[in-house]
Nucleic acid binder design. Structure first.
Lengths: 209, 209
DNA sequence: AGAGTCGGCTAATAGCATTAGCTTCTCTGC
DNA sequence: GCAGAGAAGCTAATGCTATTAGCCGACTCT
């Protein structure tokens, strides 16, 4: 009975391969065990079960995702603050979309659906918070109020802006991945126009605030 | 052996109840059978199996969703065209979010993930197309070009605008439902600011195009 | 009333996760 | 160099899911 030489890290790595081919929802212990050349129950020596494995995979994906964003965000920008913010947010948005299109399964793992309401996922929450912080940092040159006061007519705050960026990019990517864009019109170009629109909106709303 | 008096429509209705409590991913024949007071295999007399049931549920949800949008969209607007478009798109966006928050499972069913790449779902595709058409109609007063020519710098087209609206609203709602907004800041208000921003962006991009 | 269809049932199969308990490999300490 | 311990594999068994096959009672129509 030769040993397969598994470990928690190795199992998670194999699980990532499954996620890449079958999607995050298609992650199954049976598929991982098959790749490892091992019987399914053997995996329980390394992970606590399917929920635990899903959490571990999500954590790795969030960290990888954040690392990608950070790489893009640390590029030095020149020019006036508004221009720097526009360049940064555009670069970040492109990085998010590129990640999602390259690794749809991992992108799905990054999204909270699976773990947001999971009490044992505080580590993932913290890691996800770091990725949001990267976006917030990119928007800093716009000089928005960090957060806004009460009232329905309060001006755009940084929290609002970060949420808008995340929503637009995430929504676009999800619709694209889910085949939600029926028309053959160039999706690439639509994405750039959406970013144009968002950036113009930032400047317009800040001006009138 | 008394009869339960089921039918395809009745089964789908029970399935919708399951979707409302367990989510679209939690839809299971076992749960539907339990609600119907019937053994699981009996359901096969009325639906073709779980994939078929999922399609039927999705179709109903898409139609219900579209009906909601239409109700909102047919309200008569007054004022200049830009103002009418702004009011319409804002009302539609609010309707989408309200639907999603009221029936998260049904909203998930509306999204293409489950059926977009399913060959037997052409009926759903057509129904979904009708909901997109409602949004396109609302944006009409803006007077955008129906679609745009080639080239990375082409101006904003109606196709781009519809995609932007869908992406922003869908992304916002998904993040909200998935618990993606960690901060306690008022989500309601952020949504309104995002709509402000989008509408301002439409006007800005059309002006310069 | 009788025939046929329809709508329920039980039984059986197969894929999944999980637990229990056994065996064997490997490494460490003497 | 060997003994023991613990780690890492295994098989077997349970329970949940969907699905198919085949049975049988009940409604309907003539």
């Amino acid at each position: 009975m030769p040993r397969a030489g598994l470990s928690r890290a190795a199992v998670v790595t194999l699980a990532l391969e499954v996620v890449d081919t079958e999607g995050f929802a298609g992650l199954t212990l049976a598929a991982v065990a098959a790749r490892a050349g091992v019987a399914v129950p053997s995996l329980y020596k390394h992970v606590g079960g399917l929920p635990d494995l899903r959490r571990a995979v999500a954590l790795r994906c969030v960290e990888e995702f954040t690392a990608q964003l950070r790489t893009v965000a640390t590029t030095e920008r020149t020019g006036p603050p508004d221009e720097r913010a526009a360049q940064s947010v555009r670069a970040l948005a492109r990085a998010v979309r590129a990640f999602a299109l390259a690794h749809p399964g991992r992108y799905a793992a990054v999204q909270g659906g699976a773990w947001a309401h999971d009490p044992g996922a505080s580590e993932i929450h913290e890691a996800a918070g770091r990725s949001v912080a990267v976006i917030a940092k990119a928007l800093e040159p716009l000089g928005l109020a960090p957060r806004s006061g009460a009232g329905a007519t309060a001006p755009l705050s940084e929290v609002d802006a970060v949420r808008t960026v995340r929503a637009l990019v995430h929504g676009f990517v999800m619709l694209e991945l889910d085949g939600g864009f029926g028309l053959p019109d160039d999706v690439e170009r639509s994405f750039e126009r959406a970013l144009d629109l968002m950036i113009a909106g930032f400047l317009a709303l800040r001006a009138e605030g």
